[in-house]
């Protein structure tokens, strides 16, 4: 299978991470207003998840950590070279791992699904695949 050009992978990563910044920002704004994200598909899943004790770590909404992660991934997608390739891979790996954990919490602990969290988990999974392809395909090679 032919490997996509690195420029293409970087473009995809920029698009996905920018979208991720939007999703995480919306969740943060909805929470800071004392409410919960609105589940576009209906239901109470978003509210149940937002009001659970797992939605905050040390008093900070976990979506704030999401914003930081996505912004760093945007930066990595803009930069060239091995440092950016490795950083993008490691940050998206951490984000993907944390998304797996949060999805586990939603399904088995909170027993509710928030579509905004699912959207973020899907974006982070795609970012991990994109950054892993970039790292495996181009690390150690000319920028």
């Amino acid at each position: 299978m032919k490997l996509p050009r690195e420029g293409t992978l970087r473009g995809i990563a920029t698009f996905l991470a920018t979208f991720g910044v939007g999703v995480a920002t919306y969740i943060t704004i909805a929470d800071s207003g004392g409410g919960a994200p609105v589940c576009v598909a209906g239901g109470h899943g978003c509210q149940t998840v937002a009001e659970s004790s797992y939605s905050h770590v040390l008093g900070v909404n976990i979506a704030v950590f999401g914003i930081v992660g996505y912004v760093l991934l945007v930066v990595c997608s803009f930069l060239r070279g091995d440092a950016a390739r490795m950083a993008g891979f490691l940050i998206s790996l951490a984000g993907f791992g944390y998304s797996v954990y949060l999805t586990y919490l939603e399904v088995f602990k909170i027993e509710a699904i928030c579509q905004w969290c699912v959207a973020s988990a899907v974006l982070m999974t795609l970012l991990f695949l994109t950054n892993a392809t970039r790292m495996l395909g181009y690390v150690g090679r000319e920028p």
Partner: peptide, 11 residues
């Protein structure tokens, strides 16, 4: 190539 192998091992 060695550098590439090393970075992939880290990954």
């Amino acid at each position: 190539d060695e550098r590439r192998q090393r970075l992939i091992k880290i990954g």
